[in-house]
Structures are given as structure tokens and as C-alpha cells.
Design a protein around this nucleic acid. Structure first.
Lengths: 228, 228
DNA sequence: ACAGGTCATAATGGATGCAATCAGTCCACT
DNA sequence: AGTGGACTGATTGCATCCATTATGACCTGT
């Protein structure tokens, strides 16, 4: 947005554009199903369409964008089934990632987790809430040297972010209470060094969210039957 | 062999080139750490560098290629730790994928699994063996409508293929016997409809392979310490 | 009025050409 | 002889231009 500087200096333009579009999708600025026009992006970033196209290819591989040859690009939209699949995948992977992170969860880190959980309870803004939630969980995923798994989990979060946003907007007080309790229980388990319990809590937390999501099919527009 | 590609269905040049390079990496024609020159690829496919660059971006996102700005592209090489990580991920995901595939595993499919397992035991050629192994497992991953998880697993297989090749080349007769037994046990469990057991077998099968891989650090050259 | 077909517009896909950057080599200097 | 720096060849990054394709409007015919 404020990146109007036409510097050819730092990293490549395609990387910058990919980053910008990714952020726009995650922030809700672009919504699932929305058309992405190459030239518009090129103009916005002060370049030609070449780096834009490379960025879109990359985002397609990340699952954030859908490309159709000779036709165009759209922000990827998921069916409820696909979204559920991602959550089932997360349910299996994030406990594993948490386990690998165990040794890096110092008292200091756990302290900041406590702070994040508190701020979430006080948060009134949807976007802030989503950001805090993400920060909270990824703070527990500190595994160093293991980039593969964390990058994978990051992508899974990214592709489902629009639906997490939509769902969070209409969750009731009771479920929100449970949501926060999960977080506090997770912090307690980590503080006690009970990783076995911590893994279970994460898995249940993700599963609970998935089940709740599946109760809101209205979040997933069934407009595009052919989704590849 | 035609089922192993997660690419889009369009026939654009960049998709074709990505497919070709992917296949070259999986077949061992390109080896980890090997330099990839854009112009060479462009010439080989009778085009310009533009689609080549898009293909490389895509392959980078898939974890098969490593790009460095203004410098070049290399076939991605993994450390033993990263490879192990992928196997741990597979150990969690493939049982889940298998479970989702249960309803599609008809008698006919199980019959073909039996055939594949047999052909593997008789196979003397390394490349054929690898291909049959891949076909065997992906034949069990028939989940329809669930493309997310299967594509993910496909990518995990792809990124570790070179090391699977290197390892398979120096496995002894005893381990090979166990390897085949796993396959036969899996077919039996599927034939009995005992999905719980089948999931366990797959998990153990993957774990066993990982542990064996970790006994062969010589497969992983430690030449590139800075791996992003 | 509706169905079918034709054409114009717009957006994408790709080729060529030029500027920027990196790697290796050679040379000067200590 | 070893070290540091400039130069050159090679390669990547990007912009401009042209070809191709899809989409939607318009028109014609029934």
C-alpha cells in the first residue's frame, strides 16, 4: 500500500508482489472468488505484468490463488469439504510441530503466550482477534531448524484464513468461552512441561473449531461447482 | 505415472515445462544441488525464458527447486533433518488419507494392489521399483473429492524422491524383506476391511523407512549449510 | 421475443531486447 | 607468495510489444 517506492534495489519484484497479494488475501482485502487482474496489480506496484505473473504462479502453488489458462486468476475459494480437510490435516500436524517446539518454549515464551491469551479475551476487533490468535499459536511453534513442517502449517493457516474470519464473526459467547479456555489450558500444560497433554489440547482445539465450522455451511458459497 | 502430477489442467507452456522439470527431478535426471539454467530449459522446450521462469517459481513453491535472486536456480537438496521431517509429516498424514480412501478401495483395486506388490518383489530395476512403490501407495490413496490432502502427500513424496532413490539402492535383503511384508500386510488389512490396522501399518511402514534413512547420513551431502 | 451466430473488446500467454547483478579471472599492490 | 580490487563474461530480472484466447454485446434469422 505505502510501498510506492519504485526501487529496483532490494529483493525481486515478483517476491514483493507475491508478499503483498498474500497479505491482501489474508487481511480480507481480497475475498475468495474475487477476480485478480494482472495489469491492475502491475500498475499498483509500478511494474510490468511479468513479475505479477510469477507472483501469481507462486501463490497458486501455495493454494491462495486459482489460475485458469487464458482466462484469469481468482482468489482461491474452498468448499466446506476442502476447508474441513485442511483442518483435519492441521489436527494431525500441529501437535507434531508443537512437540518439536517443546525445548524452545522457555518461561519467557510462555509468559508472552499468557499475555497474548489475555489480550485475545479483551479484544473487540475482529482483525485484531485473528492476528492475536495466529500469533498465539505460532508462538508455540518455535521449532528451530525445522522449517518444512512450520512452513506447511503456515500454508494451511493461510488458505483457510478467510473462512476463519467469516466464522469468528458469528461465533456465540459460549463457544468463545470454550475457545479461550482451550488457550489457557494449553498455556498451563506448557508451563507444566506436560507436552503430551499440550498436544492433545491443540488437537482438540483444532477439531472443535472444525466441527463448529461445519455447522456454518452458509460461510461457503456453493457457486463454483468445478473447483479442480 | 499419470496420476502423480498435481498441476493444473491447462496446456500452457509454463505448466508443460514445470511438469517436465518435475519429472526430470523425480526420475533422477536432475540431481539435488544441480544448477538449472533458464535459457537451457527454454531452448530445450523451444520457447523463451518467460514460461521457464514461471515454471521455476511454481516448482520452488512445491519444494523441488531453490531460487536465489539474481543468481540462479538449483534442484532442492534436503538435509537429513529436513528429510526426516517430511517422513514424520507423512507418518501423520498418510493414515488419514488412507482412511478417507477406504470406501473407494473395491475388490478390484485391492486386486491390483496385490499385483503391484508382487511385481515389486520381482523387480530388479531400481527405477521400476521406485515407480511401483509409488503406484502401490497412491493406489491406496483413492480419496475422491479430497484433493487437498492427496496433493499435499504427493508433494511430500516428490521432495524426498531423490533420497528414497539413494537409500533404496543400498538397502540389504533383510530390510527389503520387511519392506515387502509391510505391503502384503497392508493389502491383507485392506482386504479384511480393517482400516484401523491398515492405518497403523502405513504409519509403521513410513516410520521404519525414516529410521532406516537416518542410518544412512552419507546420502545427505552436508555441502550447503545455508539452506534458507 | 428468443435462439443462434458473429464480431469487437479486453485480458492473458509468450517472444524479444535491454539493464542489473553475480561469479570467476586477472592484475596490481603489500 | 598472498591478498585485495577491478574487469569481463555469463545469467538473471524486467519492460515493451505482439499473438492468442475468452467473454460479452450486437445482430440476424426464425
Amino acid at each position: 500500500m505505502s510501498e510506492a517506492t519504485p526501487t529496483t534495489r532490494d529483493g525481486s519484484a515478483s517476491a514483493r508482489i507475491a508478499e503483498a497479494v498474500r497479505r491482501a488475501i489474508l487481511s480480507g482485502e481480497y475475498q475468495p472468488g474475487e477476480r485478480i487482474v494482472q495489469e491492475e496489480l502491475a500498475e499498483r506496484h509500478g511494474g510490468s505484468r511479468i513479475p505479477v505473473r510469477e507472483a501469481l504462479r507462486q501463490l497458486e502453488s501455495e493454494g491462495l490463488v486459482r489460475l485458469v489458462a487464458n482466462t484469469g486468476a481468482w482468489v482461491q475459494s474452498l468448499t466446506m469439504g476442502q476447508c474441513s480437510e485442511v483442518y483435519q490435516t492441521r489436527e494431525r500436524l500441529e501437535p507434531l510441530l508443537l512437540r518439536h517446539s517443546a525445548e524452545h518454549l522457555t518461561d519467557e515464551v510462555i509468559q508472552s503466550l499468557d499475555g497474548l491469551a489475555q489480550r485475545m479475551e479483551n479484544s473487540q476487533d475482529l482483525e485484531e482477534f485473528l492476528e492475536l490468535d495466529r500469533q498465539f499459536h505460532f508462538t508455540t511453534y518455535r521449532a528451530e531448524g525445522t522449517h518444512v513442517l512450520r512452513d506447511l502449517v503456515t500454508r494451511l493457516w493461510n488458505t483457510t484464513q478467510p473462512y476463519r474470519r467469516a466464522y469468528t464473526g458469528l461465533v456465540d459467547a459460549e463457544h468463545m468461552r470454550i475457545f479461550h479456555d482451550d488457550h489457557h489450558m494449553l498455556v498451563s500444560a506448557l508451563r507444566d512441561g506436560d507436552m503430551k497433554l499440550a498436544e492433545q489440547i491443540v488437537a482438540i482445539h483444532i477439531r472443535r473449531t472444525r466441527v463448529n465450522l461445519e455447522r456454518h455451511p452458509e460461510i461457503f458459497p456453493h457457486t463454483t461447482p468445478d473447483q479442480e
